[in-house]
């Protein structure tokens, strides 16, 4: 992709690349707590069927994933592992924070062992609220992320600077 590196990517090509990227997301499921079951229902159950959105669940390793979904309570003991797996994912990578606990600590806002939000550790693209969110809510979060990917500027992304997408 010499075009991307040189910063001379024509607009139709950007749009084509983004479209193909957004409908082939490999989602790495990081089930931490209660939300993991709802995520499992969204990813693995025939009723919600995430594959119709062009999202492929259950990759074997974070190295194959484009999107990681943190669902559940993040504890201080878990944080090093979360950071490590996030670093192993290839760029461009996206993060969905699912559920109140991953968003802000949720019902455990005053606990001594819970991290108050996964965004203290990794940058988050989409927050899905709820305790736990219904599988439909997670699907909507994924759709929002796809819209966001569709608007992305590949050249800006390649520069490695923080992205601001409206």
């Amino acid at each position: 992709m010499g075009l991307v590196e040189s910063g001379k990517l024509p607009k139709p090509l950007t749009s084509l690349l983004n479209t193909s990227r957004k409908y082939s997301i490999w989602i790495f499921q990081w089930g931490l707590a209660c939300c993991a079951i709802e995520m499992g229902a969204a990813l693995g159950s025939p009723r919600y069927d995430v594959m119709r959105l062009g999202v492929i669940p259950l990759p074997a390793s974070p190295r194959q994933a484009d999107l990681v979904c943190f669902s559940g309570t993040v504890t201080d003991k878990m944080v090093p592992a979360i950071r490590r797996l996030y670093d192993q994912m290839p760029d461009p990578k996206y993060v969905i924070s699912m559920g109140s606990c991953a968003n802000c600590g949720g019902p455990y806002w005053d606990s001594y062992s819970v991290t108050k939000g996964v965004d203290q550790v990794v940058p988050v693209d989409v927050y899905v609220p709820g305790c736990p969110p219904r599988p439909e809510a997670l699907l909507e979060g994924i759709v929002l992320l796809q819209q966001r990917i569709g608007k992305e500027d590949m050249v800006e992304r390649w520069k490695g600077e923080p992205l601001v997408v409206s």
């Binding site: 090093p80 979360i82 670093d87 203290q120 940058p123 992205l163």
Partner: peptide, 17 residues
């Protein structure tokens, strides 16, 4: 890689340790 905050850097160091 996108820019990381101090807290994120700390988490990275911890993971290395």
């Amino acid at each position: 890689m996108t820019a990381v905050s101090d807290r994120q850097k700390l988490a990275y160091v911890n993971s290395q340790a």
